[in-house]
C-alpha cells in the first residue's frame, strides 16, 4: 500500500532522513518507533505530501507522491503531532471544516462528524469551543479530524503526546476499532508499549535511519533469547575486560558495560567474578528480550518518554 524507497531529506547540513526504505501492506498497522528528532515526523510529512523528499520515491496505493499528491492526500487521513485545531471554533465546527476539505458535504459531513464524536465520546461537548476542552479531549478531536472521511490510509504522528495513560489507552482503543475495517496505518511514537501493543510491524528509527524493521517477534529475535545486563560501578574498562570473557560484550567503557547473557545463572557467575576480583559494582539491571532491549541494542540507549 505504501512503498518508500531510499528517501532522503536534509535541512541545510542536517540530514533528517538519511535514505529510508520500507513497505506497509494494506490493512497493516506500521509503527515508527524512535526518540524525538529521529526523523519520524519528517517521514510522515513526506508520505502525506506536505514535504518533498530530496531523493527517493514514495508510492502510495500505486501512485507516485510527486505526481499524484492530491489524489493520494484524498485517501489519506493525517493526525499531526500538534493539536492543529481552531480553538475558537467548536469541536463540531472543526470537524465540519476539515471534513469538507476531503469532499464531505451535507448529510455525509454531519453524519461523519456525529460518528467520530460518538467514537471518542465527545458528542455532548461537541458544541463547545475547543479552547474550553481539556488536553485529552483536544487530542481526541485532533484524532477525529483524521478519521472523518474514513481514509484508506491513516498517518498518525504521536497522537497520544502529552496525555495521561488512561486517555492514551482510550485513544489506542479508538484506533484499533477504526482500523479493523482494513485501514492501513502508519503510527509514529516514542512510547514502546504503544508500539508493542498496537503495531503489526515496527520500524525502529534513529538519526534518520531505519535500524531495524519487522514484527515484534522478529525484532525481539534480534537480541535472541539472551538478556541484556547493564552494570555500572567504580571500575575501569581495563579492570573488567578480562572478567567478561564468557559473555557477549556490546559496550564497555570506564564505569559501565552492557552485555548479552544467556540466562540468569550466567549473570550470577559474572557478578561472582566481579566480587571476587574486588571490582566495585554500583547498579545492575537486567532486561529480558523486548522491544526495549532491542532498542537499546540497536541505539545503545534507552528510549525515554
Amino acid at each position: 500500500m505504501i512503498e518508500v524507497k531510499d528517501v532522503r531529506k536534509s535541512y541545510g547540513d542536517v540530514a533528517a532522513l538519511g535514505g529510508i526504505s520500507f513497505t506497509v501492506r494494506e490493512g497493516e498497522i506500521f509503527g515508527f518507533l524512535g526518540p524525538n528528532g529521529a526523523g519520524k515526523t519528517t517521514a510522515i510529512s513526506i508520505i502525506s505530501g506536505l514535504l518533498l523528499a530530496d531523493s527517493g520515491t514514495v508510492r502510495v496505493a500505486d501512485m507516485d507522491i510527486r505526481k499524484d499528491s492530491r489524489r493520494i492526500r484524498k485517501i489519506q487521513g493525517v493526525v499531526p503531532q500538534e493539536i492543529a485545531l481552531y480553538e475558537e471554533l467548536t469541536g463540531r465546527e472543526n470537524l465540519h471544516f476539515w471534513g469538507s476539505l476531503y469532499g464531505l458535504v451535507g448529510g455525509n459531513l454531519r453524519g461523519a462528524a456525529d460518528r467520530v464524536l460518538e467514537l471518542v465520546g465527545l458528542s455532548e461537548r461537541a458544541n463547545d469551543p475547543v479552547r474550553t476542552y481539556s488536553g485529552g479531549m483536544k487530542r481526541r478531536i485532533n484524532l477525529c479530524v483524521g478519521l472523518m472521511h474514513r481514509p484508506r490510509i491513516l498517518l498518525l504522528d504521536e497522537p497520544t503526546l502529552g496525555i495521561d495513560p488512561q486517555a492514551r489507552l482510550n485513544i489506542l482503543d479508538i484506533i484499533r476499532g477504526e482500523v479493523s475495517g482494513g485501514t492501513t496505518v502508519i503510527y509514529t511514537t516514542h512510547y514502546l508499549e504503544e508500539a508493542e501493543n498496537l503495531c503489526d510491524r515496527i520500524a525502529i528509527i534513529d538519526h534518520g535511519q531505519i535500524l531495524a524493521e519487522g514484527t515484534l517477534q522478529q525484532l525481539t529475535q534480534l537480541v535472541g533469547e539472551e538478556d541484556i545486563v547493564m552494570v555500572t560501578g567504580n571500575f575501569t574498562d581495563e579492570q573488567v575486560r578480562p572478567l567478561l570473557s564468557e559473555v557477549k560484550v556490546e559496550h564497555l567503557e570506564d564505569g559501565a558495560f552492557r552485555a548479552l547473557v544467556p540466562d540468569s545463572g550466567a549473570i550470577g557467575k559474572l557478578l561472582g567474578r566481579f566480587f571476587s576480583a574486588g571490582v566495585h559494582v554500583g547498579e545492575v539491571s537486567i532486561k529480558e528480550p523486548s522491544l526495549e532491549s532491542v532498542f537499546i541494542k540497536l541505539t545503545g540507549r534507552e528510549l525515554r518518554d
Binding site: S45, S48, G49, L50, R70, R73, K74, Q76, V78, P80, Q81, E82, I83, A84, L85, Y86, E87, W98, L101, Y102, G103, V145, L155
Partner: peptide
C-alpha cells in the same frame, strides 16, 4: 505555529 497550516498542507488542498 499551531500546526494548522501544516495540517492544511496535508489535506487535498494545494
Amino acid at each position: 505555529v499551531s500546526g494548522i497550516l501544516k495540517r492544511l498542507g496535508m489535506t487535498p488542498a494545494s
